[in-house]
Every structure is written in structure tokens, then in C-alpha cells.
Design a binder for these strands. Structure first.
Lengths: 305, 305
DNA sequence: TGGGTATTTTGTCTTGGGCAAATATGCGAT
DNA sequence: ATCGCATATTTGCCCAAGACAAAATACCCA
């Protein structure tokens, strides 16, 4: 890129990095980085190189590193942190997943769509979600954290998976279905894919999902549960959602919600929870969703008609 | 609504209204409105009523009114200004829209879906978007600002509209199409419905949309544009996106993007922009999208095969 | 090893002032 | 009246330095 001498004002850096203006200024004051140039007005102008480094730092922070440490490091040490991250990943037919990951990395979205579709048909929704979609989403998340793929590749992948699920749900006209289940996430949790997968599973399992989409405040969840007469409120949490907010949110919701409405909490984000929360059923794996369904139906057999 | 005594901290008000923290504080200092309560820490807590009024003021500003005047007015005078422009969308009968609004208010989502679908079939995608979907979205936004509906009703409505568009796009296998158009929003802009409507229109108009979903940083938009070899980058802005961020973002993108890639900016959010931005085509209405398409094809007739 | 307490660390909010770009206003000429 | 231009006002963003509480870490003891 020829824009070596390009520099961005603080508002642009805020948009690009996700770090607030206040944070950028306070870092400069406390840690001595970044040190932007100044224009004639005395206002900050961040060189493009510093912006890139800030993006890298933000990514490492999302991975759990603390700013105080990161901001002391030089470029080489930062890069060194970026690469490693030994982890063990799932047990599914790795080669197949590898092949798909390669499609994601090369952002070949024309090729992705038909392959997904074929795999869905072959395995059926339930197994497709558990064996293909969920592991893939996990690996894409990991790859993004390690800087092996960019935001763009991740977006393209998510869009096509979303399209796939929505196409699969097309034309399935719901009328009745026994547990009526409200689907949403708490404010701040933006990830929709988890909800979509649950909706797909519930639909084929003859439940009645009511999809609200992401980010519903607790008071509105309560209103919705009453208005739509649901039996269960199901929430999805990704790994990036702060653990304490998860606990707090679930506790608050349990308190606010009528006791005869169950709460199910699923997603990678709830695997991290040590302690159970009273009155909340944890669904760390998709397999547990089926168990929860069976359990609910068993319990409510007598009560209903 | 039970949330009478609810109050929001300044960051939430910024998110809800699209008015920056700085602006909120400087209005308080200069015009004496809003005057938020303070918590134990001395930090601002905006009553929900003031937030709604701020949303209304922002809407009127987007329409060309100046803050200095608006902030002197009382509630009645504000409502008087607000009402007249309600019927800007002539094509679909107002009664029809009223009927749909009643479905939204009563969160009757079982009834909504088939009606939407029938209207889409009857009018065709192009007219459905312009005469039904866009006006309805606008009215739902206004109803929310006036506290006539809650978040829950708004979410349910959005979900079903989204489902509708995604179903409509099902099975339309794209191979080629002349302007290749990247669809996304800038970081911070979460609204997806605008993008979906554009994708639907572009598809039926035989263009080649590449949907990235919301919130792509500028550097990634540039990468995506190169990788997918697009001719146009199309961005969508809702009214709640801060105006200055819109201008700054478009300017930054124009600078970062290769000159032979056009930039189109659409959505209610760009109606507020007074001045044109060099190298960026404004698409305030959906009708302008067709004009833009025709224009592009005309210009690039000679260059291509 | 688990659990509770002290101690950093860290992000967000506060105030009040300054400045330039956008917009309105006034005035003279056509 | 209406246009053109110069002057005045409005308006939003940025700056600085300080304060404070929530989160994360370190520490200690059972």
C-alpha cells in the first residue's frame, strides 16, 4: 500500500480498533504508547503503523492478555505472542474440517455454499450441527484469534452458514409444537449463529421456537415470555461474552421471570461456568439440548392435556 | 410500561440516540437540556423520558432542523414539528400500513409472516421493498422512539422481515452479474435489514452482491474488495449511526480504496448528510439504487467486453 | 487445593476551555 | 425581489488532568 505517511484522527482509530477515545488518550498518558503525531490544531494523528499495532494489541487482549503488559512490549515480542497457542482441537474427521478451513482461508465463498448444503443433506440437521457446523465455527474463531484469517474471511463464512440455516428453515410452517421456546441473547452478545442452530434443531424436533434475535434486555425478555406464552427461555453465550455478565444476567433473569418458565443457557460461553445457577439449566453441548427437551416433556406430561 | 423510573448512563444514551457523549454534555451546558439525574458517583443518569425526547430531536435534526431551535421547544411544539412529515410514502395505502403496525404492536407474529409473504408476491420484490418494507421499518422505528412499542416487538418484527428476505433469496444461484457489489456496514453499525433489502434488489436486478454482513473495519473492506474483485462497495447507515462517524468513515474508506472501485452509501442515515463526499455516491432512497445501477452500467459499457 | 481479602490495574466519567467548520444573517448591487 | 459576498453565530469535536469503581491479580490462610 502506498499510504505510508497516512494518518488517522482519533475518531477513526476508535472506529477501526474498537478502543475508545478515552482509552487511547489514557494509554498515551500512562504507558507512553501510542504516541500520535499532532496536526496544526494540536489534535492527534495516528500513523497507520501504530493503528495496526493497536489492532494487534486489541486482539491479544481479547485472548486474555492484559494491556499493561502488552503496551510495554516491542513489535517483535508482540509478534512472538501472536503465533503460539498450543491447543487440542476436536475429534471429528479432521481432514474434512481442514478442507473446509482452507476454503474459509481463501475466502472461496462460491465453493462453500454447495458443499455445506450437500453435507447438511447427507448427515441431516442434527448431526450436521453437532459434527460439522459447531466444530467449524469453533475453529474459525480460533483461527481468527491467531490472526490466521481476517475479519473479512470470518464474516463471509458466518454469512454463508447463516444463509444455509435460514434456507433450511424455509417453508417449515410452524403451527403447534410442545415446548414453546423463546430464543435470544442478552444485550452485548451479538453472535446469532448459535441461536440459528438451536432454532433449526428445535424445529426438526417438533418444538416451537420463537426467535427474537440477539440483544434483548432482560425486562423485554420477561415481557416477551409472557406475551408469547413460552415454556422456556433459551439464551446463547459465545466465548467472547464476559463470564461475570453471563452469571449476573442469568441470575437477574431468573429472578425477574415467572417460576414456571424454564431457563436454558447454551453456547461455548457457558462451558466456562464453574458453578450451577439455581433454576437455570446449562446446555454446554448440543447433545444436552436433546436431553433438555426430553426432560421437559417428561416433566410436563402430566400437567398438560 | 413498567420502566418509568429507569435511567441510562451516558454511554447507553450515546448508543441509543447516536449523539456523542461530548454533544450530550455540551448541550446540557449550553441549552440546559437534557438535565440528567446523578448517581452516587456524580455520573449522569438520563431518565428514559429524556432519552426518547433526544431520539425525537435527533430525528428532526436529520430532517434539517437545527439543535439550537429544537432544544428550546417544549414537548408539544416538538410533536407538532414531528407529525406533518409522516406520510412521505405514498404508494402503499396508509390504512394498509396501519393494519400492519397494529400487528407489530400486538406482537402477532403468526399473522405477520403470511401477510408479508403475500404482499411480496403480489407487488414483486422491487415495489415491496420501496412501498411496504421500507416505510414499515421507518414507522416501527418511530413507534419505538415514541414508546408505543418495546424492544421485544421491534425485534420480533425485524426477525420476521429478515426471514422473509432470506427466504426470498433462497435458491437463487448466482453465477455472474455485472456490477459485483460488496455489501456491509462500518464498525458500530449493527442494522442488517437495509443490507438485506439491497441484496434482494440487486439480485433481481441481475447484479452480483457479495454480502459480508454488518461491522467490517475499513482495512478489511479494502482487503475484501480486492479479493472478491468487486466493482462497488455499498454501505448502509441507519439513523442511529452518528453523523460524523458516517462522514469520517466514508472519507477514510475513499482514501483507502482503489479509485476504480465505486462507493455507494445508502440508508436513512445518509439523508442527514448535507454535503456530498467526493467519490462517494449517495443513495438516500431505494429508487436511487436503480439509478446508480443504470449509471454504472452505462459508464462501464465501453470498458468491459 | 480452595476460598476469602488486600492490592494493583484499567476503563470510563468528570469539568471547562478552545477551535474550526457549518450555517445564518446582513448588506449592497443587479 | 434575488443574487453574491463578507461577517457573525452556531455547533460539535478535541484536549487536559483528575477521580473513582469494577475487574483482575496477588496474597494469605485453612
Amino acid at each position: 500500500m502506498d499510504s505510508d505517511h497516512a494518518a488517522l484522527p482519533i475518531a477513526s482509530v476508535e472506529r477501526e480498533t474498537g478502543l475508545s477515545k478515552d482509552t487511547l488518550r489514557v494509554w498515551e498518558r500512562r504507558y507512553g504508547f501510542p504516541v500520535p503525531a499532532r496536526d496544526a490544531k494540536g489534535e492527534r494523528l495516528y500513523p497507520i503503523g501504530q493503528v495496526r499495532r493497536l489492532v494487534q494489541i486489541k486482539r491479544l487482549m481479547d485472548r486474555g492478555h492484559r494491556p499493561g503488559k502488552l503496551l510495554m512490549l516491542d513489535e517483535a515480542a508482540l509478534d512472538a505472542l501472536d503465533a503460539p497457542l498450543s491447543f487440542v482441537h476436536p475429534e471429528t474427521s479432521t481432514q474434512q474440517l481442514d478442507a473446509w478451513m482452507r476454503l474459509v482461508e481463501t475466502h472461496d465463498h462460491e465453493a462453500m455454499q454447495p458443499l455445506f448444503h450437500r453435507d447438511l443433506i447427507r448427515r441431516g440437521m442434527s448431526r450436521f450441527v453437532q459434527d460439522t457446523a459447531a466444530p467449524l465455527i469453533h475453529r474459525v474463531g480460533e483461527a481468527w484469534a491467531r490472526n490466521q484469517i481476517g475479519v473479512f474471511e470470518e464474516h463471509l463464512f458466518s454469512q454463508h452458514l447463516e444463509k444455509l440455516f435460514r434456507e433450511a428453515l424455509t417453508g417449515v410452517a410452524l403451527t403447534e409444537g410442545k415446548p414453546r421456546i423463546l430464543l435470544t441473547t442478552l444485550s452485548g452478545e451479538e453472535h446469532t449463529l448459535g441461536l440459528l442452530m438451536v432454532e433449526a434443531l428445535l424445529t426438526v424436533e417438533d418444538a416451537y421456537p420463537v426467535m427474537l434475535g440477539p440483544q434483548t434486555p432482560i425486562s423485554e425478555i420477561v415481557r416477551a415470555a409472557q406475551a408469547k406464552q413460552v415454556d422456556v427461555v433459551c439464551l446463547s453465550f459465545s466465548t467472547s461474552y464476559p463470564t461475570n455478565q453471563t452469571i449476573q444476567g442469568l441470575t437477574d433473569l431468573r429472578q425477574a421471570l415467572s417460576a414456571n418458565v424454564a431457563i436454558w443457557a447454551g453456547g461455548f460461553g457457558v462451558k466456562a461456568l464453574r458453578k450451577p445457577i439455581e433454576g437455570v439449566l446449562m446446555i454446554p453441548e448440543f447433545a444436552d439440548l436433546f436431553a433438555a427437551l426430553v426432560g421437559w416433556r417428561h416433566q410436563n406430561q402430566a400437567n398438560s392435556a
